[in-house]
Write a protein that binds this DNA or RNA. Structure first.
Lengths: 176, 176
DNA sequence: CGGTTGCGTTTCGAATTCGAAGCACCTTAC
DNA sequence: GTAAGGTGCTTCGAATTCGAAACGCAACCG
C-alpha cells in the first residue's frame, strides 16, 4: 500500500502495442535532442530552421507560408518568426505571389543552400550513428514502409490549419 | 536553372534509409501535435506534464528531479519549472531525500493519479486512431522491437546531464 | 456592383524553454 | 580534518513558442 499506481490495465488495448508506442516516442525524443545539438553546434541552426530550409530546397522553388508551416508541423505565427530570422540571416527570401495577392512565397537563397549542404554531412552522421547503426537493412526498409503508411494516414486528417477562426456566430441561420 | 537544389546525393548513405528517417520524424511530429491537443483539451496538461506524471505513476514511488528529467528527455531547469506548476496544482509533491540531502524526491499524489487515469482513455484513443489503426499486429510487433533496440542504443549514450559544468581546466595532467 | 464570408499572413501578449551561473551538499585526496 | 572537485537543484535572463485577434485580399451571393 505504498500507494497509487496507474490503472493502465483497464484502458490498455494491449501491453505490447503500448510498449511500441512508448519506445517510439522515447527514441525519437532522444534523437531529436542529439540532432538539435549537432545542428546548433555546426550551423547555428535550430531543428525547425533546418527543416524549413531543407523543405524549401527539396521543393526547389517557392512555397507559401502556410504550406511550409503545415509541412514542418509548426504554428503559422511561429513560422513567421523563424522566417524573419532566416531572412535577416540571408538564407531565404520572401516575396508576394503572382497568383494570390495575400500569399507570401518563400525562396531559399544560394547562401541557404550552401549552409544546408555544409551541415548535412554532420547531420547524416548523427542519424547514421544513432538510428541506422543498430538496425539491419531489412529493419530499416520495414520501418520506412510502416512509418510512411502512418504518416500518410495522419496527413489525411485535417492539417494544422483546421482551427475554426471565428466562433459560430449566433446560432443557426446566418443565411442571410 | 531556376535554381539551387540540395546536394543530398553526395552525402546520402541511401535514399531508402533517408526516406525511413524522414517518414519517422514527420509521423511522430504529427502524432505529438494531436496528442498535445487531446491532453490540453481533456486534462489541461501539456505533453511534458503528462509524461512526468505517467513516469511517476509507473515508478510507483519517488524519483529525483534528474532521473525524471533524463527519463523525459528534458532540461533540468525546464523540469523545475514544470514541477512547480504541477506542485501548485496539487498533482505532485516534492520533498527531501533521506539518502542525499541535496536531492529532491518527487511523488505523485492521489489527485495526480486520478487525473492521469481520467485523461488516459482519450490519450490511448488518439494513439489508437492515428498510430495503430493503419498497422497490422505484426507491423506493431516489429516496430516495437526495432524502436526498443534503437532506444536502448541511444540510452547507452551519455544522458542529458552530460554537459561539462566547468571547462576542462588544464587538459592533460590529471593523472595525479 | 455592394455585402458577406473565408483564407493567408502577421502582430500581440502570455507561457514555456533552454543554458549558464549560483548555491548547497556529497566525495575524494591528502 | 579539511580543502578541492563533483553532483543535484533552482534562479536568472534571453529566446522561442503558441493561440487569439487584427488586417488585407479573394471568392461567392444577391
Amino acid at each position: 500500500m505504498t500507494g497509487p499506481l496507474i490503472d493502465v490495465g483497464a484502458h490498455a488495448p494491449d501491453p505490447q502495442r503500448l510498449g511500441a508506442y512508448f519506445a517510439l516516442m522515447e527514441a525519437v525524443s532522444l534523437l531529436q535532442h542529439h540532432i538539435e545539438q549537432q545542428l546548433r553546434a555546426e550551423g547555428g541552426l535550430s531543428s525547425v530552421q533546418f527543416q524549413v530550409l531543407t523543405r524549401l530546397a527539396a521543393a526547389e522553388g517557392r512555397l507559401t507560408m502556410t504550406a511550409l508551416a503545415d509541412g514542418v508541423v509548426y504554428s503559422r505565427s511561429g513560422l513567421t518568426y523563424q522566417a524573419g530570422l532566416l531572412e535577416k540571416a540571408g538564407l531565404i527570401t520572401r516575396g508576394p505571389s503572382p497568383d494570390d495577392e495575400r500569399a507570401t512565397l518563400v525562396t531559399i537563397t544560394e547562401k541557404g543552400v550552401a549552409l544546408v549542404n555544409g551541415v548535412l554531412p554532420g547531420h547524416i552522421q548523427v542519424v547514421q550513428r544513432l538510428l541506422f547503426e543498430p538496425l539491419s537493412d531489412g529493419d530499416l526498409r520495414r520501418l520506412g514502409d510502416v512509418m510512411t503508411r502512418v504518416r500518410d494516414h495522419m496527413r489525411a486528417q485535417p492539417p494544422r490549419s483546421a482551427a475554426p477562426r471565428k466562433r459560430r456566430a449566433g446560432g443557426s441561420g446566418s443565411a442571410s
